[in-house]
């Protein structure tokens, strides 16, 4: 609709835009769902690979365990002490990777994770980095064993 058609009481375009932006939730529903109902939480005592990484600045800690079947990821579990996107993206990554070929899972990068549950704010990108790094380290550990 052209702004001139809005009628004399309508707000000018920039204000409408601003108002819509302001009403955006801080986190997407999908992200909050993974945070509130995290999938694949726990440890795998029989894991083929495991890794723990920590963000030295903010203190988030993430642990991941992978169990393989041939060249396929059979199971993944995680434990985390971290902020909302860390937990949500760890949950997402484990759900997504389960049943996939290792080669495909290796392509899951921080850049992909930073947008997959809605664009993360700049100061939250560390969560995508931590999840990607921990997952790749767990896969690397399974290759070593």
């Amino acid at each position: 609709m052209d702004s001139e058609d809005c009628g004399k009481n309508a707000l000018p375009e920039p204000f409408v835009f601003r108002r819509l932006m302001d009403s955006e939730p801080y986190y997407s529903d999908k992200l909050l769902d993974h945070y509130q109902n995290p999938r694949n939480v726990g440890v795998l005592p029989e894991a083929d690979g495991e890794a723990q990484r920590e963000n030295q600045v903010c203190g988030d800690v993430l642990q991941m365990f992978v169990k393989l079947h041939g060249d396929t990821v059979k199971e993944i579990r995680f434990k985390a002490e971290g902020c909302i996107p860390t937990i949500a993206l760890a949950s997402y990554a484990t759900e997504w990777a389960t049943g996939k070929k290792i080669g495909e899972v290796r392509k899951l990068s921080p850049a992909i994770l930073s947008a997959v549950l809605g664009e993360l704010p700049q100061h939250k990108l560390h969560a995508a980095l931590l999840v990607a790094e921990t997952l790749q380290a767990a896969l690397a550990d399974s290759a070593d064993s």
Binding site: Q36, V57, C58, G59, D60, C83, P121, H123, K124, H126
Partner: peptide, 19 residues
């Protein structure tokens, strides 16, 4: 999400990574 508003001094929540 339970309708209770508080605040935190934790890192990450303030727009910076610093606690």
């Amino acid at each position: 999400l339970e309708g209770i508003a508080v605040s935190t001094g934790a890192a990450c929540s303030s727009g910076s990574l610093e606690p």
